[in-house]
């Protein structure tokens, strides 16, 4: 596939990409034409009528009906074409095909959670290729916006109702998936990937993804990884490296030893104890099951120096 200015010219990764990029190139050519007229026109006019010596009286021409009609009507015709084309593409982006696979999306500060029809969940959007996928999205807190640049799709994710978008990956591979509505401290970390797999590999992945996810998967799925590093670097929240067994100083000056019960409380009621130097911004995790909680705490315990 050939890329220029970020838009594909040949070979698309999805049908929506092709629709949008064709329109993009049409508008680009129209724009380049007018830009050339304006810039070239200015350069020629300045070169031709450059002042030499003192100015005398100049032409009083201030109208040319034919010219004015041309430069009013021509842009109108072009924008009407662009409008209809743009609207047509927009409707195709808005209306998902009937055979779409439906995946529910929960957005929150600051991670994405994808829920599949079979009840399994994932922190990455794993999809089969050549299959339209419809996302039904809602937010648990503020407004987010789900954006997959390679597929040219984006839709705000609202806290008080569902919004939807659809796409289809025609090529297996990894694609960026990110939040584009500013949502606070972790906005630029609210990132995950679309992983498009061939059909058989996708089915294999689905079987493996049943039941309780492993600790590392949960750590990503519940968005812990957005704010808590595993390598000792402080992020929006404290690092997990060497956390278990450590003594933390809290915002009110008291100290607490990090044990299983402290971790449990901090996951279920994040605002109960705030470590000094950090903001009370962690969201509660009401969806977490007790099996998952055990697996997650075991994973955090295993992050030793």
């Amino acid at each position: 596939m050939l890329n220029l200015l970020g838009m594909q010219i040949l070979g698309a990764v999805s049908p929506t990409t092709k629709m949008v990029d064709d329109l993009f190139w049409f508008v680009f050519i129209v724009s380049a034409f007018f830009f050339a007229i304006v810039t070239g026109g200015i350069i020629i006019l300045v070169a031709l009528y450059r002042r030499r010596g003192k100015p005398g009286l100049t032409s009083g021409a201030s109208h040319n009906t034919a010219l004015e009609i041309v430069w009013s009507i021509l842009p109108v015709i072009l924008v009407v074409i662009i409008f209809f084309w743009g609207f047509q593409v927009f409707m195709r982006l808005s209306i998902s095909p009937g055979d779409s696979m439906e995946i529910r999306v929960t957005a929150r500060k600051w991670n994405w959670l994808f829920k599949y029809p079979d009840g399994s969940r994932s922190g990455q959007l794993v999809v089969p290729v050549e299959q339209p996928v419809r996302l039904v999205m809602s937010s648990e807190d503020v407004i987010h916006s789900l954006f997959i640049p390679d597929f040219r799709v984006k839709m705000d994710v609202l806290p008080n109702r569902y919004t939807t978008l659809w796409f289809q990956a025609d090529k297996a591979g990894e694609y960026d998936l990110l939040c584009t509505e500013f949502c606070g401290d972790g906005h630029s970390r609210m990132y995950t990937k679309v992983i498009a797999l061939p059909k058989d590999e996708f089915e294999k992945w689905q079987t493996e993804n049943q039941g309780t996810a492993s600790g590392p998967d949960l750590f990503v799925m519940y968005g812990c990884a957005t704010c808590h590093s595993l390598d000792g670097k402080p992020g929006i929240g404290p690092t997990m490296k060497g956390l278990h067994g450590k003594t933390e100083t809290l915002a009110d000056g008291t100290t607490v030893e990090v044990d299983d019960n402290y971790l449990r409380e901090s996951i279920l009621e994040p605002q109960a104890k705030i470590v000094r130097g950090y903001q009370p911004v962690m969201p509660a995790q009401p969806d977490i099951t007790s099996d998952e909680l055990d697996a997650l705490i075991d994973f955090i315990k295993s992050q030793q120096e």
Binding site: M19, V20, L23, F24, V27, F28, V30, S31, V79, I82, F83, W85, G86, F87, Q88, V89, F90, L93, S145, F147, P149, R152, V153, K154, T180, E181
Partner: peptide, 16 residues
């Protein structure tokens, strides 16, 4: 602005 006014393209460009 013409790019952004065209609905189909704006979906890609919005908030970028």
């Amino acid at each position: 602005g013409i790019f952004l006014g065209a609905l189909g393209i704006d979906v890609q460009m919005h908030d970028t």
